[in-house]
């Protein structure tokens, strides 16, 4: 299979990429291309031009300070998964990255690409919601910072406008984080993925967030789960009760031949329980 014809532009800078997106009709961005190229081969996507941002300098890499992590948009999943800084500042993010696809996919796929694509089966969106990520994007109207909860709008849809390019992601440091997934055995996409963040103060849960991807068309925050756990110690019974409320946030759960909607909601509950337990134990 090969894609339909397109023109190819390699952008040397973000400014050039933004300018090309604004001036070349039907142009799409590519970096790792591990969502776009398969879609183009199936001709589900037929962009008239690709703007390759994969070689732009300064867009890749991970830095950390006491507040958290700054990850360049072109950073591959393999780099995030292997990063000592990520494992230490936000272990759940390293787990989410390591759960994506396979070695070959992680070597090419990038965090910016995954977020901009917003695939319902992707692993990063739930993690970004739970871990309180902020996404930086540059477009023809300049730069802006977008909360993860504003970025993801619907299946394959974000709030980015046509000329905006994600340049990086900031994630607050949080030891009490975990990501767990039930992977589709053939595609490796998340049938269900649950990201949990727990912070404690004096033995009680002071903050809690749970993000779920794979179940609904777009990743969601499971608010009732967090409310149920906050303000008290996170023991096994309370985690079980809290996780039992995940279904309240999963209206419109999708089903397919592999996993019915009902089964996905059940898996979400089991994974929420395990992810919360792991996050709470890391939070100390």
């Amino acid at each position: 299979m090969y894609p339909s014809r397109f023109d190819y532009h390699r952008a040397a800078s973000i400014e050039e990429a933004v300018q090309l997106l604004g001036s070349v009709e039907g142009a799409k961005l590519v970096s790792g291309g591990h969502s776009l190229i398969p879609a183009m081969k199936l001709r589900v996507a037929q962009p008239t031009a690709l703007v390759d941002i994969g070689r732009i300098e300064g867009l890749s890499g991970i830095s950390s300070d006491e507040d958290g992590l700054a990850i360049g948009a072109l950073t591959t999943h393999a780099e995030v998964a292997a990063s000592a800084a990520v494992k230490s500042a936000c272990p759940g993010l390293a787990e989410a990255a390591a759960a994506i696809g396979d070695i070959q996919v992680r070597n090419r796929g990038t965090i910016g690409g995954s977020l901009a694509h917003n695939d319902p089966g992707a692993d990063y969106p739930g993690a970004m919601l739970a871990f309180g990520a902020e996404i930086t994007a540059v477009g023809s109207n300049g730069e802006r910072t977008i909360a993860a909860s504003d970025l993801f709008v619907d299946m394959f849809t974000t709030c980015l406008d046509e000329t905006e390019v994600i340049t990086g992601v900031r994630i607050p440091a949080a030891r009490g984080t975990a990501y767990l997934k039930h992977r589709h055995p053939a595609s490796s996409y998340a049938v269900v993925g649950v990201a949990a963040r727990v912070a404690t103060e004096g033995g009680d849960v002071s903050e809690c967030a749970v993000g779920v991807n794979g179940v609904t068309g777009c990743a969601v925050l499971a608010g009732p789960v967090s409310e149920s756990l906050c303000g008290r110690p996170a023991n096994q019974d309370r985690i079980r009760t809290a996780a039992g409320r995940v279904g309240e946030s999963l209206d419109g759960a999708v089903g397919d031949l592999y996993a019915s909607a009902e089964f996905r909601v059940h898996l979400a509950e089991v994974h929420a329980r395990r992810a919360l337990a792991a996050a709470a134990s890391r939070a100390g």
Partner: peptide, 13 residues
């Protein structure tokens, strides 16, 4: 030096 799937890469990349 990294394993990649050559069916999912453009030659120009």
């Amino acid at each position: 030096g990294k394993a990649v799937k050559s069916c999912t890469l453009l030659a120009v990349q």
